[in-house]
Amino acid sequence: MRIDLTDTTASKINKALVQGRRALGTPAVGMVLTMVIVTDEENAYDSMKAAQQASHEHPSRTLVVIKRHARNPRERHQSHLNAEVRVGADAGTGETVVLRLYGEVCDHADSVVLPLLLPDAPVVVWWPVDAPDVPAKDPLGALAQRRITDMYAVESPLATLEQRANSYAPGDTDLAWTRLTPWRSMLAAALDQARATVTSAAVESEAENPSAELLSRWLEARLGVRVERIVTGGPVVTGVRLGTEHGEITIDRPEGPLATLTLPGQPARTLALKVRSTSELIAEELRRLDADEMYCVALRGEPTEEGPFHD
């Protein structure tokens, strides 16, 4: 069910949500969080689709904020808010409100969003593109327990990575880091089996890949060795090599969903290591809303006192 509202207010949007739930015979609200997506028209559809798919695991109220900045000073004073309210099959397992802000109201998006947040529920803000320089100090970011950015969506990911390291605040995370979860798990399991001390390391990837840079910094911080960066032609991270006193531990994934794991003195094994969809990455982030300390470690490359892969 979809309800279109023109030149509206937060109060009218809340009434439309209640009206939509009653029309569908589901007046009870069973959602666990509010997801705020700050995006543009070009990326709005894909972002909403990813959030809708993630909502099957985490029922949520999704607020999509699209700022339609004025093209000239005269239009800037024509401030208003349009909204699409979606419930039922059009909104996954929760509710979706698409907010289009025009004119001066673009500068006060937090005031529009605040009355629409679910009471006593966590807030997550996701910027698929055009994230602020300091997410925690952004007016919308300040409302959230979790702030999700994506360094894959910027022109200079490594420069942005340095900026994120300098401005990190508890609650910040990035999908470039989330993409590494299967790699981290596989490396931890491989080292546990090998029971060997790592003396050297290398990470292979395409040039300027933020995930590979985060993985390198994380390995340096946890293993206490310098990690060599090797540029390859493959997509994303294509391989990790850890030198030990017993031989080399390698994970190779040049392309496709399968990787080859090689341990010293053991035959090579084929393991699943696919590139996950955006909805899968978002769903993972919504499972844990506390501070991601390992992301901070990877950003700053700071050595830790714990064992190699103790989280």
Rank of each mutant, 00 (worst) to 15 (best):
residue 33 L to H: 01
residue 33 L to Q: 06
residue 34 T to I: 02
residue 35 M to E: 12
residue 38 V to W: 11
residue 40 D to N: 15
residue 43 N to E: 13
residue 47 S to F: 05
residue 48 M to W: 03
residue 48 M to Q: 12
residue 50 A to D: 02
residue 51 A to W: 04
residue 51 A to V: 13
residue 59 P to V: 09
residue 60 S to G: 05
residue 60 S to M: 07
residue 61 R to Y: 03
residue 61 R to V: 04
residue 62 T to S: 06
residue 63 L to H: 10
residue 63 L to C: 07
residue 63 L to Y: 14
residue 64 V to D: 12
residue 64 V to N: 08
residue 65 V to R: 13
residue 65 V to H: 12
residue 65 V to A: 15
residue 65 V to G: 15
residue 66 I to G: 09
residue 67 K to L: 02
residue 68 R to M: 13
residue 69 H to I: 15
residue 69 H to K: 11
residue 69 H to G: 03
residue 72 N to A: 13
residue 75 E to M: 12
residue 75 E to F: 15
residue 75 E to S: 15
residue 77 H to W: 10
residue 78 Q to A: 07
residue 80 H to A: 07
residue 80 H to T: 07
residue 80 H to E: 12
residue 83 A to H: 01
residue 84 E to C: 10
residue 85 V to L: 03
residue 85 V to H: 03
residue 86 R to W: 07
residue 86 R to E: 15
residue 87 V to M: 01
residue 88 G to W: 06
residue 88 G to S: 00
residue 89 A to G: 00
residue 89 A to S: 07
residue 91 A to Y: 03
residue 92 G to Y: 10
residue 93 T to Q: 05
residue 94 G to Q: 00
residue 95 E to I: 06
residue 96 T to N: 02
residue 98 V to W: 06
residue 98 V to H: 09
residue 103 G to R: 02
residue 104 E to V: 11
residue 109 A to K: 12
residue 109 A to N: 10
residue 112 V to E: 08
residue 112 V to N: 04
residue 115 P to N: 11
residue 116 L to W: 03
residue 117 L to V: 02
residue 118 L to H: 00
residue 119 P to W: 03
residue 121 A to L: 02
residue 121 A to W: 02
residue 121 A to S: 08
residue 122 P to M: 00
residue 123 V to G: 00
residue 123 V to R: 07
residue 124 V to N: 05
residue 125 V to Q: 07
residue 125 V to K: 10
residue 125 V to Y: 08
residue 129 V to A: 06
residue 130 D to M: 10
residue 131 A to K: 09
residue 132 P to C: 09
residue 133 D to N: 05
residue 135 P to Q: 06
residue 136 A to F: 09
residue 137 K to G: 06
residue 138 D to W: 07
